[in-house]
Design a protein around this nucleic acid. Structure first.
Lengths: 206, 206
DNA sequence: CATTGTGAACGGGTTCACAGCA
DNA sequence: TGCTGTGAACCCGTTCACAATG
């Protein structure tokens, strides 16, 4: 187990480090340091050093960190050295957007299947994918050994679909439905609800 | 100023409370209490009482909280009693999804304008909106007195567009572009990048 | 000599536990 | 009696400051 006693909040920051580092790589930067990383992220340099030191000693005194090495190391830590297959459930606008999105490739994921229960959508083509019937979800997802899902169905259907995904062997769900899902504790769940973030900001407005 | 010394992390939880309370209202629940709320949210009852008590005394000993009253109170605190107008910049799949989304109405927001710089999209209809030319963004947004924006343009265009939004008088930006925006400190910025959350989960997989 | 890695100090958010009240 | 509101205790993440080092 890599899961020793590393705070979840530290884990949550690592993907952001990786994101910025991959940008740095595009900018042809070969080395960086905790000060520069911190400035780009709005985080203190000490925090970044402390976070990284939880997993080993990746830097060189006087020099900083190798961008390439740190990228590779973070990919190993975050378990995204290969591409995880993703199933998208819900072929509405949001499902379309995710199925078309080109940004997954270099960051450890690839959409593999798209499902919906609407007869008008089943069989339709979305980019490289044919929308499949949710009725077949459990069998198809299990057979394909997919463990990661993105949920873009209406709130009223989200709980039921989530349970089916778990039955199909999915252990990580990113839900766009604005409700709290009730699932076994061993299932990873994350939420995206833009309104929560909008309301967070309006608190500070005016 | 409502901004006394309330921790930002507390503010971030309030929208979640509001979300669950609005569900409770749909379920015809008239009162609730910190225990029930906490169970639904995966938060301790003490935390919820502490958070709410930062803003006043909203509960009744022995009874709990009035769902309606708490909803109204939170809407006042979060500054979402009326609907904020939102400008969507980027009329791709994601922009479509946001323009069509019916969930803003009851939660304090309404999409009011949609922009893109792609000639093939400008003039097209998306639901009730006609896609406008980004070249006119600053004037149009300022004239309409819109202060909240959602950014769904490619990463390469995000910084430039964000700066234009600020010039137009926008003070809160929800960005879907996977880069850190560099903006004045008085501008509220929030990010949505599904890959960050996926990578957070894969850390714990296997 | 610039920058890392880290123990220690610090700060602040969370939990505890109970008085207070409907 | 049941549940809130809250001071105090606790816990844990962040910052500090410096020895270590390429």
């Amino acid at each position: 187990m890599e899961t020793k006693k590393i705070p979840d909040i530290v884990v949550a920051r690592l993907p952001r480090y990786l994101q910025v580092l991959q940008h740095m790589k595009q900018e042809k930067l070969v080395t960086t340091n905790s000060k520069v990383l911190g400035d780009r992220l709005g985080i203190s340099a000490a925090q970044i050093r402390k976070d990284l030191s939880q997993f080993g000693e990746f830097g060189k005194q006087g020099t900083g960190y190798s961008v390439d090495f740190l990228i590779n190391t973070l990919r190993v830590i975050l378990n995204v050295t290969d591409a995880w297959k993703i199933v998208v459930v819900g072929a509405g606008d949001l499902g379309h957007a995710l199925a078309h999105y080109q940004g997954f490739t270099n960051r450890g994921f690839q959409v593999s299947m798209v499902f919906d229960n609407d007869p008008r959508l089943i069989g339709k083509q979305i980019g490289a994918f044919t929308v499949q019937d949710t009725a077949d979800l459990i069998d198809k997802v299990r057979a394909a050994e997919i463990h990661v899902a993105m949920l873009t169905v209406p709130a009223s259907a989200a709980q039921k679909v989530a349970e089916e995904l778990v039955k199909a062997g999915v252990t990580a769900i990113l839900s766009y439905a604005p409700i709290v899902l009730n699932l076994p504790h061993n299932i990873q769940v994350q939420y995206i609800d833009p309104i929560l973030q909008l309301q967070h900001m309006t608190y500070y407005l005016e």
